[in-house]
Design a binder for these strands. Structure first.
Lengths: 356, 356
DNA sequence: TTGTATGCGTTATCAA
DNA sequence: TTGATAACGCATACAA
């Protein structure tokens, strides 16, 4: 209530000097109260400092700390496309983990403009972020290399980076593809078409495609596998034609199914099937990567490999915090398992779907 | 190539002192080059400074600038629930506008925990953000008041704040509800049920509900309107029962339709209709607020009021930047119009849907 | 155990 | 027009 000595609150918040004056000690002592508490501070002094702090509602300025000590308690998060539900889901997990650890997240959305990746990292670095979480293309003009990170640790999410020896967190793409294809084969779908967005060197797309090809090859004559790269620019007729071809070229009695590389593809496939007047699980089997909220609304329910997006985000954040904490050693790799959710789209005629 | 005088790059990036030494001028001169360029700097000195800057790839430290000058070029963005697609869509527009203006966004997700609103703002403020974009509940323990904002300007998105005289940007809820209800009535749907998430004092929900009630009342005997608040905790049977009741209680020949308050509700209604074995546009008419990407996949297409989320985000950011730029005056209010997208779900038996 | 002095990178005030 | 110098808020050697 009574105005403290050095007029805090006069222009903004109380500073360490205000607290020092209020407690009748030096600024260094107040600083020590926060940083080296028990080790070197006498109880009575500590009590006085504490009283002054709570009286003035003093909170240290992270900006000033960053300038002085070098640590900002800021995490830079670069995301290729915030429109992508996957990015958002990961973002959510990562942001929560950072928050819990006392870090704040600075966001930079590339809007799928790979040329801005470098600029994004530089901008974030200029704010002295303690580390990066990167979910980007990892290609193009301003490709990131070790030097780009300004000596700060980084963790890659979902997409590997050619010249970047950083920790990596992602879905176990190979395992997930295995689960999806095995399930389809067991349900009697013999002719598989994998549809993906254009690979463009994006590691997750490449890995899934390669896993699909490897699985089809390993099945020998039992399974016939093809791959279609479908670009956003390509009209719906391209997809419609591809699906029609798939069924037409199948030998009599060989049932056809589609595996979609992500929910963007799933959406287009669902629209196409609707246009053709087909029903999933009848003319065409289906399993998609990603499990969007509307998957169960499409009759008779779309089977999907659900990604543990929240866990991926939290794991990424934890990895990074470990590194910020000083953890040394070679780049680590965390591959989290997906969860196959079986619905009607992938069941054979006599099959039964799990509830939901 | 040759090591500059004061060893830049030795420990991190070049500083203003390095540039000053390289150019043979004082730090103040270099600072002036950035802040008061043409006004008070001789051409030859400016040229020398410029050369040194590009040679050392010098970039001013925003942290140091913030400490000294008070401006951080940081925007604090508090969002109630980043899981909500609406929040993300707005976030996207806002982040882009901020980026274009040279601002970076610090993100804080409340995860629907209204008690953390205060903590969120404080945390952001401690980083000296220049302003806030708030999409929160605006209620609960740590309710925000003017003092909470630490003297920084703020803009409210989608949800008004009781004790906060800040600019406000949102969908024109009344207009959108008018469009939705008028369209339904014109198509012959006479018995309307508005389903919303629990109001909880959230202004957008309250406004839509009030608008619905007002419209129904204004229609007199032509339209019968009811409201259902559906909580996430309530089981599906509650919704199923409500829809069944709606139809059962309708006089013979009076067709029933649902208006959904947002895409969360839309999802549940679609699931319920699926469980009942109904078809939209037949047993039940439908228009929903928000136009999710899967709206056209639900047969025969879900009619919706699409929000201009991107514009809302950009408008919010621009409002805030205006204030940061010093704009005075009373709180402004920007109500952006929604776009009614008509699909099969709201058409009468003889109606024709717009393509898409 | 505590206080003094200095640096972190920048801007602003005041002289020159 | 340019240069010293003092903040900005904090942490840390170093001295006491």
């Amino acid at each position: 209530m009574s105005p403290p000595p050095s007029s805090p609150g006069a222009r903004g918040r109380a500073t360490i000097a205000d607290v020092a004056a209020e407690a009748g000690v030096s600024k260094a002592t107040v600083s020590r109260y926060f940083n080296h508490r028990e080790r070197l501070l006498s109880p009575d002094i500590a009590a006085r400092v504490e009283a002054a702090i709570s009286k003035l509602a003093y909170v240290p300025s992270p900006m000033a700390q960053a300038l002085s000590h070098g640590r900002s308690r800021l995490i830079g998060l670069v995301v290729a496309d915030i429109t992508n539900p996957y990015s958002v889901a990961v973002l959510r997990g990562a942001e929560k983990a950072c928050q819990d650890a006392g870090y704040l997240v600075m966001l930079f959305n590339l809007g799928n403009d790979r040329e801005r990746e470098r600029a994004a990292i530089d901008a974030l670095a200029s704010y002295q972020v303690d580390g990066f979480i990167l979910n980007t293309l990892g290609q193009g003009e301003g490709q990131a290399d070790v030097h780009t990170l300004h000596g700060k640790p980084a963790v890659l999410v979902d997409r590997r980076h050619a010249g970047l020896a950083a920790d990596f967190v992602s879905l176990d793409n190979r395992g997930a593809m295995h689960d999806a294809c095995t399930h389809l084969r067991q349900q009697g779908w013999r002719r598989l078409l994998y549809i993906t967005q254009p690979l463009l060197g994006v590691s997750s797309r490449v890995e899934r495609t390669e896993a699909f090809r490897a699985l089809a090859a390993a099945q020998g004559t039992q399974v016939h596998g093809e791959v279609l790269e479908l670009a956003a620019e390509q009209g719906d007729e391209v997809l419609d034609q591809a699906l029609a071809d798939l069924l037409r070229q199948a030998p009599p009695g060989e049932r056809c199914a589609v595996v979609a590389g992500n929910s963007v593809v799933t959406l287009r496939v669902a629209a196409s099937v609707s246009r053709m007047g087909w029903t999933f699980g009848q003319e065409l089997g289906f399993v998609g990567f990603d499990d969007p909220e509307w998957a169960s609304l499409i009759r008779p329910g779309l089977s999907a490999v659900a990604q543990p997006t929240d866990a991926i985000g939290q794991c990424a954040a934890q990895c990074l915090l470990d590194r910020i904490g000083g953890l040394q050693g070679p780049a680590r790799e965390s591959l989290l398992p997906g969860l196959l959710v079986v619905r009607g789209s992938s069941l054979g005629p006599g099959g039964r779907a799990a509830p939901g």
